[in-house]
Computed example of a mutant assay.
Amino acid sequence: MARLPRSTPRDLTPDALALYEKITSGPRGGFMIDAAGGLTGPFNAMLLSPTVGDPLQQLGAAIRYRTSLPDRARELAILAVAAHHDSAFERAAHEPIARELGFTDDQLESLRAGAPVALQDPVEATVLEIARALLAHGDLDDAEYAALPPAQLFELTTLVGYYSTLALQLRVFRV
């Protein structure tokens, strides 16, 4: 059972309402609103503290829409985090995106299970390997560190940290 009731716009403080409007007016907004107007997933909790929630959602938007990671590689990393943290919400949110990007049911099942994934693209395979290493060890060996350009490695470590934060919040608030 959810620990945090969903807030509708009429329930919000002015700062929380401003954050709500930022989230709902962006590219994630349309599918993050329930029938009563409340935010779903991790976004409802962000309204508890707009001074922290706003920078967090801005970071998420940057990771999703403005990094140099290819879309398929980004979704692989997100789904690796979802599998590692057993985050049903993140799986439900990102598996449809992965399917639209051409991932097969077998590939998605392998991701869920933490098993090897048949990938043709070497960048995708590298991103998945590095994401899984970060999740398992919180660090990289020298070969893993050197496998991506530094800017992409920065973006990937940030992505793994961001989605791990969301997985923690989703678990704690029982979303």
Results as ranks from 00 to 15, higher is better:
G53I: 00
I78F: 05
P9E: 14
A146T: 07
L59Y: 05
L4Y: 11
E90M: 15
E90I: 14
A98K: 13
P149L: 05
L47Q: 12
L59F: 08
Q169T: 13
V160T: 02
P27G: 11
H85D: 14
D86A: 03
A82M: 14
G60V: 01
R132N: 03
G38M: 02
F89V: 09
D139P: 02
V123Y: 12
A73Y: 08
L69K: 09
E155A: 08
L148M: 02
R72D: 13
T13N: 09
I23V: 15
L166V: 15
D34A: 10
E155P: 10
D86H: 05
R72G: 11
R112Q: 11
G114F: 10
F103T: 02
L108S: 04
Q152P: 07
D54R: 00
A133F: 11
A35V: 11
L79A: 12
A93L: 08
A61H: 13
G41S: 12
Y20H: 14
Q57R: 15
E144R: 11
A92M: 15
T165E: 07
A62M: 09
A35M: 08
P150V: 12
H84C: 12
L12V: 13
L166E: 12
H137P: 00
A113L: 06
A77P: 02
A16G: 04
T13L: 08
S164E: 06
T157L: 03
K22T: 10
G26L: 01
M46S: 03
F103Y: 09
A147Y: 05
M46V: 03
R72E: 13
D106F: 01
D11A: 08
L119I: 01
Q152D: 14
V123P: 05
P14I: 04
A147C: 02
G38E: 04
A83M: 07
A83T: 08
A45G: 12
Q169H: 14
G30K: 12
A146L: 04
I97C: 10
Y163D: 00
D105N: 08
V81K: 07
D142T: 07
D105Q: 11
A167H: 11
E95P: 00
T13W: 10
A83N: 06
I33S: 00
E144N: 05
F43T: 06
Q152Y: 07
E75R: 01
H85G: 09
A80T: 12
I97S: 09
